[in-house]
Computed example of a mutant assay.
Amino acid sequence: MRHSIVVCKGESEFSVYGFGSCKRGQIGSSSSHAKSVGLPQHIPGLDSVEIVELYANGDHSAALSADGRLYSWGRVFPGAPDACIPQLLPSSELIKEACLGWNHALSLTDDGEVLMLGGKLHSLHNDPALKSLASQQSGVTWEKVPGPDRAKVIQIAAGAEHSALVNEDGSVMTWGWGEHGQLGLGDTSDQILPQTVNLSDGLPFTATNTTVYCGSGFTFVVRKHQRKRPSTIE
């Protein structure tokens, strides 16, 4: 939204840099006086970590390592203070994908489960029946996002205050802030739990032809359609 993160790969190490707004430490700057930085600043603490993905949104940033660990800095999440230096977010699960909203984060595990941190308008904390799904570690609470029974998630996306996922069968589900119709459910209501989006385009649902993307207050889905080649008559 107001800052950028860059990773540079050397022969044997990775260097991460940040620039832009730094009021909450989201570019790894410890300066309490500067509101923004116009030149890339080296972010300490990740030089010995093999970084495969970077994420930046709202007032925080995150980095995913090759061994499935997620680091975060800036305005972190409930149960943790702001941090100018990347902090490892404790999790008992290996993470293969992550995304950030303004106040929340999603992670996708190797087992195809979705975990969530924070979120004011679509926090699972709002549903008392789901408290048993939460696991508390070092003040940071990851919550398991419920979905269809035995459904494996293959992709996740996060907007400002809403989220989306794609299941193994190609179905798309959304939840969170719905004021602008960004949940694709035909109304502007908020949703605490994931709801299935009706994609009535006549195309077959598969995990390989469906991708979901989220902006601040909108969502769109790309569905690829493979046309069959006409048969030739010899």
Results as ranks from 00 to 15, higher is better:
Q137W: 02
I5F: 04
I51L: 07
H60A: 07
R69L: 10
T196C: 15
L199K: 03
A62G: 14
G20E: 02
A151C: 12
N167W: 09
S171G: 09
S132M: 09
G68V: 00
G170N: 06
A66F: 08
V49D: 04
D169P: 05
I154K: 03
A80G: 04
S138T: 14
E234R: 08
D127R: 12
P90Y: 06
S216D: 10
A80T: 09
L70D: 05
F220T: 11
E93P: 03
M173K: 01
E113T: 00
G28E: 00
E93F: 12
H42F: 11
I154Y: 00
S72A: 15
N209Q: 08
T196P: 09
A164C: 11
F205R: 14
G139I: 10
G79K: 08
W177I: 03
P128S: 07
K152D: 01
T141D: 02
R75T: 04
Y213A: 13
L165N: 01
H180M: 08
M173Y: 07
D127A: 11
R2N: 11
G58D: 07
V7I: 12
V172I: 09
Y55F: 12
F220M: 13
K152N: 07
A62I: 03
K23G: 09
A83G: 02
C8G: 10
T196L: 15
P86R: 05
E168F: 11
S163N: 14
T141W: 04
S72I: 08
R2F: 10
A83R: 06
L130A: 05
R150I: 00
A105T: 04
L64D: 01
V197Y: 05
E168Y: 08
A158Y: 07
F19T: 05
V221W: 02
T109C: 02
L54R: 04
I233S: 14
E50G: 07
L88F: 11
F205A: 10
P128M: 11
W73T: 10
V16F: 08
G20S: 06
V76P: 01
K224Y: 11
L183I: 06
C214G: 08
I27M: 08
E11A: 15
S91G: 13
L64Q: 02
Q155Y: 03
H3R: 07
A66M: 10
V16M: 04
L130G: 04
V145A: 00
E143C: 09
G178M: 05
R229A: 15
R223F: 06
S30D: 01
M173I: 04
L193F: 05
W175Q: 01
S189R: 12
N103Y: 11
G118M: 07
E11T: 14
H162W: 00
H125F: 14
N126R: 14
L100N: 06
T232G: 05
N126L: 13
C99I: 06
E113G: 05
A56L: 01
K131M: 02
D127K: 12
N209F: 07
M173R: 13
K23T: 15
Q41L: 14
E161M: 08
R69W: 01
C8H: 10
V153K: 02
A56K: 02
G159H: 00
D169M: 09
A164Q: 03
L133H: 08
S107A: 15
E168V: 06
E53C: 10
L165D: 03
L54T: 00
L39I: 15
D127P: 01
K144F: 04
K23M: 15
S15A: 12
L130Q: 07
S171Q: 11
G112K: 01
